[in-house]
């Protein structure tokens, strides 16, 4: 299911920790990077590598918000809804995105390009309103900026 490179990368990560289990989160990130999400089989495999049970892995995955158990869009747009962004017009950005993409938070565009999420503070408060697309930060958003950003995505 995973490429040999990824598997080797995972073994290297595991080797770095004094206790195998500690490698869980980084390993999950690597798996998710390759597959786009974390299907059951992937969790079974991770469990095997780390001497854990499926239950362990699954309950841990579900504790954290950055893991996806189902496929999501190629671009995961995460708009911040917390105070600082709210104070600086974050809601307008979200509404603009909803209109532009025709989806509500939690949904994915039919072409599978975009998934929209409302997230809690992403650490961009001083440059609000802000969002992240996948791992990239976008600050000082305005509806126009948002349009430009979307247009610039490959």
């Amino acid at each position: 299911m995973l490429s040999t490179e990824t598997k080797e990368r995972i073994q290297r990560i595991i080797a770095r920790y004094p206790v195998k289990r500690s490698a869980l989160l980084p390993v999950l990130f690597v798996v998710q990077e390759e597959l786009g999400y974390l299907p059951d089989e992937a969790l079974h495999e991770v469990a095997r590598w780390l001497d854990l049970t499926f239950l362990d892995v699954e309950t841990i995955v579900s504790f954290y918000t950055m893991f996806h158990r189902r496929p999501i869009g190629r671009y995961h747009i995460q708009v911040c809804r917390n105070v600082s962004c709210y104070l600086c017009g974050g809601d307008a950005i979200r509404e603009h995105l909803e209109r532009r993409l025709g989806i509500r938070p939690g949904e994915t565009t039919p072409d599978g390009r975009f998934t929209l999420s409302e997230v809690e503070c992403i650490g961009a408060c001083s440059w609000a309103p802000a969002m992240q697309i996948n791992f990239t930060f976008y600050h000082h958003l305005t509806p126009e900026r948002v349009d430009e950003i979307l247009a610039s995505l490959p």
């Binding site: 206790v19 869980l24 989160l25 504790f63 950055m66």
Partner: peptide, 27 residues
């Protein structure tokens, strides 16, 4: 020194939850 990523849980900033998380458990 090892850099370890969190995965989206504010509670993992709390020091002992962070340690649980770093040990590969629920935070």
């Amino acid at each position: 020194i090892l850099v370890h990523p969190g995965a989206g849980a504010y509670i993992c900033g709390e020091e002992t939850a962070l340690m649980e998380s770093l040990e590969g458990k629920r935070g």
